[in-house]
Amino acid sequence: MTHSEPPRSRWSDLDRPPLGTPGLRRALVRPGSLWTSFEVVEATGSTNSDLAARAADLPEGAVLVAEEQTAGRGRLDRRWSAPPRSGLFFSVLLRPGPDVPVERWGWLPLLTGVAAATGLARAAGVDTSLKWPNDLLVTVAGQERKAGGILAERAGTDAVVVGLGLNVTLREDELPVPTAGSLALADAVSTDRDTLLRGVLRSLEQWYGTWRAAGGDPAASGLQETYAAGCATLGRTVRAELPGDRALTGEAVAVDGDGRLVLATADGGREAVGAGDIVHLRPAG
């Protein structure tokens, strides 16, 4: 007589335990905190889409986390997928007005990048650098790899939904593309997702509060300087692939007051890029 093994549930990976929702909610949703609600779902298409659809009925500070995201989106509607419980996939609802003029809301994805990098340095012991405008990079075996991305979208007239996807425990054979990475592959001292999520959300609360108190001024809040210090794009020769099939090559020399990337071109000119794909052509230095 043979004993068949019990069917393996996709949720039973002991290396990938579920998030501790009650403890996280207690730690994050408290009097005076930015975070007003905290919800974890097992799987969804996109936390950004879900939160945006409910934005009109929710106060600022709602947090939605998915253990698995089946139709996660990056910029230009690129797909972001990963095995269940292998990363952090979450979105937050922010209403920066009337403290912050709408023209400064474009800083929110950059602010989220700074907050994530700061929070992960403390919680995971990993150096995370920022690729303009919204990628999180880690170093794996001496190579720069993308471990996360940020997507900010307007929800109605007064709200912004900011989503973050971060590869935490992905192994080499699970990576969607060879240029991707994860915190585990970057030798993080901790891959405990509860600790990481708490660290990133607390850092985001702190940075958002400082920026909002400064009326969204990126210089007065220290955001512009901190972003530049952690930005792996600055000092490098890059190619900006712009809307309308236009490309521009030059040295990335600054991030201006509007959050745009300033390129010094071969003809001695300078051009600010507000949107586009950036390709790093050579290392900084």
Rank of each mutant, 00 (worst) to 15 (best):
S4H: 12
S4T: 14
P6K: 04
P6T: 14
R8W: 06
D15I: 01
D15W: 07
P17W: 12
T21C: 07
T36A: 09
E39Y: 02
S49G: 02
D50A: 14
L51T: 05
A55I: 06
D57I: 05
G61P: 05
L64V: 05
V65E: 03
Q69I: 01
A71Y: 01
G74S: 07
R75L: 13
R79Y: 06
W80N: 00
S81E: 07
S81M: 06
P83L: 00
P84K: 08
V92N: 03
V92I: 15
V92R: 06
L93C: 03
L94A: 06
P96D: 02
D99W: 13
V100A: 07
P101S: 13
P101N: 07
P101W: 10
V102G: 05
W107Q: 05
P109W: 08
L111M: 07
L111K: 10
A117K: 06
L120E: 02
A124Q: 03
G125I: 00
S129W: 09
K131S: 08
K131Y: 09
N134E: 02
L137K: 00
L137E: 15
V140T: 09
A141Y: 00
I150H: 01
L151E: 11
G156Y: 14
T157M: 13
T157N: 11
D158P: 11
A159Q: 07
G163D: 11
G165I: 13
D173Q: 08
E174M: 11
L175C: 14
V177L: 13
P178L: 03
S182E: 14
S182F: 08
L183C: 13
D187S: 09
A188P: 12
A188I: 01
V189R: 12
D192S: 15
T195C: 12
S203W: 11
S203E: 05
W207P: 00
T210W: 02
W211C: 00
W211A: 07
A213N: 08
A214G: 04
G215I: 10
P218C: 12
L223N: 01
E225N: 11
A228D: 01
G230Q: 15
C231Y: 02
A232T: 08
T233Y: 02
T233V: 02
G235E: 10
R236G: 01
T237V: 15
R239V: 15
P243W: 15
L248H: 05
T249F: 02
G250T: 04
R260I: 05
V262T: 14
A264D: 04
A264Y: 10
G268T: 12
G268Y: 12
R270D: 09
A275W: 08
G276Y: 13
